[in-house]
Amino acid sequence: MAKDITAIEVTDLNLNYGTTHTLKNISMRIKSHSVTAFIGPSGCGKSTFLRCLNRMNDFIPSASVSGSVMIDGRDIYAPGVDVIELRKKVGMVFQKPNPFPMSIYDNVAFGPRIHGVKDRTILDGVVESSLRGSALWDEVKDKLHSPANGLSGGQQQRLCIARTIATEPEVVLMDEPTSALDPMATAKIEELCRQLKEKYTVVIVTHNMQQAARISDDTAFFLMGDLIEFGPTDRIFTSPEDKKTGDYITGRFG
């Protein structure tokens, strides 16, 4: 296992919303084929930081970013970067399951189709392998052409994961993917995260510290736009170096 290859290298990243300094001098190295968790109280900037990694913040006109985010040796904020290619490489799963109002099959095939795959046999293959990859195949294989909205919340979220991995990304970003789900569905997604790192680099934002402890290899703690502490999860949860991290983990605030 090539555990120590860098997937994403962030250097001195700053983000301003208008005059609000939302992210302050963030630098970190996210390891390839690992699960990295971002924790911190709400409003600390962890979701905003996640969205910097596939440039989803581009849609907020007042947001301005400085610093660099290197993925595959290229700065994704350099001029001339193809955002479309970037987002194909860095997929994202959102807080609330957001399947398109189409069939299960069309949801998963959406990405490959817009990226030019027309051949039915290839699409069938991608749909099956992606749904297997998100542990949903057995539940939906007989109703691939029924509407995705008919699935349960947990199934919808796994469908969204399948939809994301169908474009064969290198990185999968997850923005509090279980916050809208019940404990059973959450357990399934967590299990899935551990499997996903075999093939992808997973970065997950969570408000649930137990979740971070259960599934992640590395953990980053954010507070008011600052990256307070970043390191192996076992160490962060057992012997945090910063007092604020300790206070948050032991539930003294947040």
């Binding site: 994202m92 990405g111 939809r163």
Partner: peptide, 24 residues
């Protein structure tokens, strides 16, 4: 959220309009 999902999959704005927003 539907637009976000489409953009996050690497769709262009026009593809998002035509394939996601318009049908919905």
């Amino acid at each position: 959220e539907l637009r976000d999902a489409s953009f996050a999959l690497g769709a262009t704005r026009w593809e998002t309009i035509r394939k996601v927003v318009f049908p919905a």
